[in-house]
Nucleic acid binder design. Structure first.
Lengths: 230, 230
DNA sequence: CGGGAGTTGTAAAGGATTTGTGAGCCGCGG
DNA sequence: CCGCGGCTCACAAATCCTTTACAACTCCCG
């Protein structure tokens, strides 16, 4: 079933661009350019998600957000903020926004976040699920403690190591492409080297493998990525 | 597989510099200096990514971007904007560009962004055409794991082997011409020997056949190509 | 049936690309 | 200031891809 979105943005140029892009993705889109109007539209039309600019004539995006939440609505809200308003992120999230992107934003990123918000009404951005516990062979990982155990040796893990391992664990038995891992762990806005992943894999193997040089669990799939044996 | 890029930039100096740098990175690059030309090239050559200058004689980068998106193409677009065009960044992105860099830009940054854009787009573009599972005789191929099983022997496969096998599997029971396979797997613009395919078939047979010397499944059709028995 | 031309099988060598890995840099928090 | 996580770099190693060379095979035609 088609999802209904509401776009609240005063700049006509941007508003139309957004609406077009979202409609092209198959969403049902309505739009408006005033905060007050937005509030009544949310009440009347109950959209599945709201894309909300912060800078609005009259009621600001913050005001809209606050009022909506005060009215006990839990509709996911994606905030648009102008460039360099980093601090606002905190404010926005406190007020009940679910995610936020800064202008100038990449359309692809916005679409991805809209999709993510619709899929799981999760508060956090790209936080992929990390299982609380992962086991394979004689290794057991306790995600909450950022710590693992191989046999009776225990070791600490860094957040990144954990995320990479989780990405592989979720697909255990299958090969996972390097690009997929990079996207999941580092995010689509990452502009670094792909070698960073190799380096991290080395560290991981030193912790989870009995013989890091001849990995038994975290094996490489040449030309593609890595696989965690089931 | 080499990624195919299009560079649209009217300043010959910059254009050549860009092309050289990108080619040095291993990309296949074509270029042009007019907006109109760009649009037809995008349609005809379907590049994996477009580097697009905003200031162009005739159609501007904005125009190109809009037309491309109107034509439902999703090719990632990286905009080049002149210095101090802050506002235009927003407009450009809103029109469907995926990222931007401002001139004068560091080559390093541009390369990083090109790589990142390709990475983001990767899962969407490659996900097709290879079936998740292929079986014949006592052989079972698990594409997602890049691995197969013959009887109770398991073996790993390379991405290329998988593609060739998939090309045959899709037409299983029918003979597939060598040229067809070469085009599908190596791409239309491949200048190598046709013997490369034979070599790969040898490798494949060693993995999937009980007697590689007397193939039962991957049989050769003399003067034409190969056939995978159904 | 036999021979020649063209096609394919296969091992081995070489080249190209991808990955492993140690060393060093940077930024951050203690 | 130090230590740590995270990143990049540079070189080594592993792997895959391609080419080469020659043997074996198939097809066609006399």
């Amino acid at each position: 079933m088609k999802k209904h979105l509401l776009v609240v943005e005063d700049d006509a140029h941007i508003r139309l661009g957004l609406c077009d892009a979202l409609r092209a993705e198959g969403y049902d889109v309505i739009d408006c350019c005033h905060g007050g109007e937005a509030i009544s539209l949310i009440r009347q039309r109950t959209p599945d998600l709201v894309v909300l600019d912060i800078m609005l004539p009259g009621k600001s995006g913050y005001d809209v957000c606050r009022e909506v939440r005060a009215a006990k609505s839990r509709v996911p809200i994606l905030m648009l903020s102008a460039k360099g308003q980093e601090i606002d992120k905190v404010v926005g999230l406190e007020l009940g926004a679910d995610d936020y992107v800064t202008k100038p934003f990449s359309l692809r990123e916005l679409l991805a976040r809209v999709q993510a918000l619709l899929r799981r009404a999760a508060p956090e951005t790209t936080a992929s699920e990390i299982p609380e516990e992962m086991t394979f062979g004689n290794v057991r990982i306790d995600s909450k403690a950022l710590r693992g155990k191989r046999g009776r040796e225990t070791f600490d893990m860094t957040p990144r190591e954990l995320k990479v391992l989780a990405a592989l664990w979720r697909e255990r038995g299958n090969a996972v492409a390097r690009d997929t891992i990079l996207n999941e762990v580092w995010g689509i806005e990452y502009y670094g080297t792909t070698r960073t992943l190799d380096q991290l894999v080395v560290k991981l193997r030193q912790k989870i493998e009995d013989k890091p040089g001849e990995p038994r669990w975290l094996v490489t799939v040449h030309g593609h990525g890595y696989r965690l044996e089931a």
